[in-house]
Write a protein that binds this DNA or RNA. Sequence first.
DNA 1: TAATATATCGAACAAATTGTTCGAAAAATT
DNA 2: AATTTTTCGAACAATTTGTTCGATATATTA
Lengths: 193, 193
Amino acid sequence: MNKVEIKKEIVLNVAQDIFAQYGLTKTMIDDIAKAAGVGKSSIYYYFKNKEDIFRAVIETQVQKVQEKIRASINAAPTPQEKLKAFVISRMKSFREVAHIYNHVFKDEYLKHYEYIQKIRKDYDQMELDLVASILSEGINSGVFKIQDPSLASFVIMVGIKGLEYEWATSTDIQKMEQDTEKLFEILFHGIMK
Amino acid sequence: MNKVEIKKEIVLNVAQDIFAQYGLTKTMIDDIAKAAGVGKSSIYYYFKNKEDIFRAVIETQVQKVQEKIRASINAAPTPQEKLKAFVISRMKSFREVAHIYNHVFKDEYLKHYEYIQKIRKDYDQMELDLVASILSEGINSGVFKIQDPSLASFVIMVGIKGLEYEWATSTDIQKMEQDTEKLFEILFHGIMK
DNA sequence: TAATATATCGAACAAATTGTTCGAAAAATT
DNA sequence: AATTTTTCGAACAATTTGTTCGATATATTA
């Protein structure tokens, strides 16, 4: 990582915190510049404009969430446990980025419809593929009996998203994991051979 | 409370939340108006300007903190327990208004030096008087041996403020109360007859 | 009901804010 | 020493936003 990339990283890190607290519109370039310890105009040496920084922050966040989820799935041995790992890891990661998540998907989603929508859509598709691949693996190894994996993963994702609100308001992670366990107990007995 | 006062109260309540989150400068009149469900210009029927709302919010907060502290002192039977009640109640109240407290006394204290300084000064004086009166009561009832109550209360207040940072960063209220207990154990044995 | 007072808001404006550009000056590299 | 890379102050343009004002709606009073 060369010098420019390091500086970019620094700016991105402070921008992440400030955006998380204030959102896109209420964050000023000078806020970021001051926090990063550089002049306001220097920011434009690294990024095209404010939205460019915001986009980079969001993309970094999304990528980190993806990586965490993938890692926890890979660490799980069986398809059943992979599914559980996916749900729990997703839940935890979302809680970690809850602040910026609120700004992106609630406060200001109207103004920046286009590219936020695209990021969201891409992310949703990636999750769908992930779940579908877990299900396929389960079918191949003979533990799941599913006719249409992509349909099943769609249903699973819809279910998870339906629980999002409940998870967002709860503070007891252990209880959430227990609830997830219960959910999957029912789900597994519906699809297991 | 008449209609105007009720509306003022509503505006003040939403303004409190928004100021707590964004601070004075980053809060827009329209944010408050939208949250209160009124037109932007209607706000000016109730308040002179933005700072007027901010000042009212701060004053309300300060007053509520004062009331809580006074109530808990009155509920305590002995001077020793009144002192303890003061410290613990103050600590808890400050934690409750921590968000707005940060904005008022950290982020923007330079811009609005004059009246924030005055509010702070008045509040400090009130606390000083409160502690002094508790000490006086203790002296009169013969449980405290103090030459100069106002000097002693000044020292106590300085001590409490010195602990503020530690309290602000800690999340374990029970531990904080235990620490306070220890502090007062020492203090009491120094001043008790 | 008519008349008066109270309450609300849209539109417009002035002032301030702030994202962005640009050229010059450091700092680093060749 | 020359050239390239990096940084930033100052200025500008565009936007934002606090505030005003007159008109309209709603409530009150006579």
